[in-house]
Amino acid sequence: MKFVISVLSSSNAPSTRRALRFAQAVLAAGHDIVRVFFYQDGVLTASNNLVVAQDQQDIAKQWQAFIAEHELDAVVCIAAALRRGVLDHSEAQRYQRDTVNLAEGYQLSGLGQLHDALQQADRFISFGGE
């Protein structure tokens, strides 16, 4: 089966860790992930600027590693990202901001990518809130 997974909370939320463990189980079961779409506060999970205490799980780093390992299509909604201060090089230039903080492996794009993924997939699940 083909899954679309949406992450709606920052990496501090339990739901974002749950999303990752779910995504890992999806691939372990032999299913495909068409796209992981980061929306609402989920765009903050794609930040490269997080500092996590040594005795805590760095869920953002784990998401990034998971995406890289499996070459997943990880899209971050550009409108949601801009309004929360997550920018790639191109947007930082466009809006003359000092910081490029979109982590490697993520792409900024529009909600059309969510709909495109839904059209290709069989199942959609989102993880947000706490």
Partner: peptide, 8 residues
């Protein structure tokens, strides 16, 4: 943000 999904 829900409405944006609809408009898209």
């Amino acid at each position: 943000e829900a409405l944006d999904i609809a408009l898209a």
